[in-house]
Amino acid sequence: MFAIEKYHKAATVQETVELLSQNSEAHLLAGGTDVLVKLREGHEQFKQLIDIHDVQELQSIEMLDDGTLSIGAGVSCTRLIRSEIVQAHIPVLAQAANMLGGPQVRNAATLGGNICNGAPSAENASPLVVLDAQVNIVGPNGSRLVPITEFYLRPGKVDLEQNEIVTDFRIAKESYENTGGEFCKYAMRNAMDIATIGCSVICRMDEDRIEDLHIAYTVAAPVPTRCRTAEEMCKGQVPSKALLNDLAKVVHEDLKPRDSWRASKDFRVHVISTLAERVTEKAIIRAGGIIA
């Protein structure tokens, strides 16, 4: 706890970028559900704040002309869950947002804050990763798009300069069209908990074969991670128990879970395998497949 030095409230993205540039020690405040916790713990990094809570440009959920979905960084988890667009095209994201915190936290917590905070456990990270989301970043020199897997650099660190803001997340039509998805948060409590392991899968079927399958985990490596070896293995396969069993083993090739007092490595490895089977099975069925 300490006295806050500066506080500005921005009205537009443009103004935000200007304020950031003028105040080189300032950081953004969206829903504040991560920042306020850090303030209480005394992280002086947040002693100058620019509040983007009311920036309207960050609030939209829309489908662009080419079918790309754009989800504003300022959209709260509650709005994500209730959004018709999200429910219709990428329900896996709503599923994840619905497991974040509790109702009060979800009302405040934004998608942008969840991702920009850089936590390896961020609930919304694994769905965005399997959906190949692009992070739209605006800075003094214009905007840039970064694939979400590249946006995560290391725990607590994302590819964002001090004077940049994330405006929205983009999901291309080919990433979500005709897919079925599933999300699972494995935690010690049903709500208000940090994930021991998080997992998302989306799948597209071609007749009775898997055309494409993406699987990603949180808390299973330093940053949210896709299991590309396992994904390759599944392509073109007819779904079966045996395949799920193999998948449960192969996912580990791309993962590196920690051993900590919160959960042993053995336990995390076991949960990762169990979720590989269960989450994938559900995603395949959602995509119209059947498990032989």
């Binding site: 076991h270 169990t274 989450v279 099975e281 559900k282």
Partner: peptide, 21 residues
């Protein structure tokens, strides 16, 4: 469960179930 040998075994048997998560 691991000591009791339940995990290795049952992992083979895990079947399709709705709403597991």
């Amino acid at each position: 469960f691991r000591e009791a040998g339940l995990l290795g075994l049952s992992m083979e048997k895990v079947g399709a179930r709705d709403n597991v998560c």
